[in-house]
């Protein structure tokens, strides 16, 4: 059998109950990540996304060790404590010891991530938690863990991530105006009573909740890609936040489909099927597809700006400027 046939067979083996849900969960994660991801990228805080995604690990592992369950309330509580610890730690380094902002974040989150890994290895001696799943997620197995909702067995991850996506959109819509003002002109926002510190906390809380919700499916490392890369790609094409978030969600959904297809067909195409390696990691392939999306967006922007007439100050304008 040719490799092409092997690839087609791999896709024919798709079932809505497994592969359909994997893509649905990834797409929901893309929507959930698009809101905080867009805000963090637009506010030049991409490093904070990296920090939060890594720093929640000791919170999640610690909560698991304490409670012995993967109950969402425990996980979210542990992650929130860890995220606050990271914010406080990096703020201390930045303000008291005059460490540069990104370096302070790097010190705080790598220390917490290392602690988290140690806790995960400790927890792995027990049951139900695997270090590689913690890092790269286990979206392939997410459809197997079902709960009943509306008389139908639905993957727990889909419900949790959908609720987080809905909460992110609702919170962002509610606090939209003060967040916009404090992101663009912090001095004005503070003077005009828009409370920029509270806006920072809201954006950080959205990012933390999203990392916790997506943690089991995408892992603590891959979720960073879903937060940052689609938003960066969308920024190349959009001059306003709402279209940017919508495009970021679309990029994330597209990358999920591409990534899962690639994960299913890459191994048979590469001739690895016979060796027992049926699939690559979907989360890893999704992250690679996100990289490809970014490269595509950057290429499209370069082509469009080359074909654009030079117009003084407007020469640098963005292709999708409204």
């Amino acid at each position: 059998m040719s490799r092409a046939h092997a690839a087609i067979d791999a896709l024919r083996a798709w079932t809505p109950e497994v592969d359909g849900w994997i893509i649905a969960i990834g797409a929901l994660a893309a929507v959930a990540c698009a809101v905080p991801g867009t805000l963090l990228v637009a506010r030049r805080q991409s490093m904070a996304a990296d920090g939060i995604a890594h720093a929640v690990l000791p919170g999640i592992a610690g909560a698991f060790l304490l409670s012995g369950t993967r109950d969402l309330a425990w996980m979210a509580g542990g992650a929130a404590v860890a995220a606050v610890a990271m914010s406080a730690g990096s703020a201390f380094l930045e303000r008291r010891l005059r460490v540069e902002r990104d370096a302070a974040l790097g010190i705080a989150y790598t220390a917490l991530f290392a602690l988290g890994l140690a806790l995960v290895v400790r927890a792995a001696d027990g049951v139900d938690i695997d270090p590689s799943c913690v890092l790269f997620g286990a979206i392939e197995f997410a459809p197997l863990d079902r709960v009943t909702a509306g008389g139908r067995a639905v993957p727990r991850a889909a419900l949790v991530i959908a609720a987080t996506a809905g909460a992110n959109v609702a919170v962002a819509a509610l606090a939209w105006r003060p967040i916009l003002a404090s992101s663009f002109d912090r001095g004005f926002a503070r003077a005009a009573g828009a409370r920029p510190a509270a806006c920072d906390a809201i954006v950080g809380a959205m990012a933390t909740a999203t990392c916790v919700a997506c943690f089991e499916s995408l892992g603590s490392v891959i979720v960073v890609a879903m937060l940052v890369v689609p938003a960066c790609a969308a920024r190349l094409a959009c001059a306003r936040l709402v279209p940017m978030a919508a495009l970021a969600a679309a990029f994330g959904c597209g990358a999920t489909v591409l990534g899962h297809v690639a994960a299913c067909v890459a191994a048979p195409v590469a001739g690895l099927d016979a060796s027992g390696v049926r699939e690559l990691s979907t989360a890893g392939c999704v992250a690679a597809a996100l990289g490809a999306c970014f490269a595509g967006a950057a290429g499209a922007r370069a082509v469009m700006s080359r074909n654009r007439p030079v117009d003084g100050a407007h020469a640098a304008s963005l292709p999708c400027a409204p």
């Binding site: 916009l180 003002a181 663009f184």
Partner: peptide, 28 residues
Amino acid sequence: VAYVPQRAAVDWDFPITVRQVAEMGAHA
């Protein structure tokens, strides 16, 4: 009270339109 900070205190690359900037005054 309207306050206009120094230019360096503003993120001019932030994705926001001129109309949205003016709207901030009305929202305040």
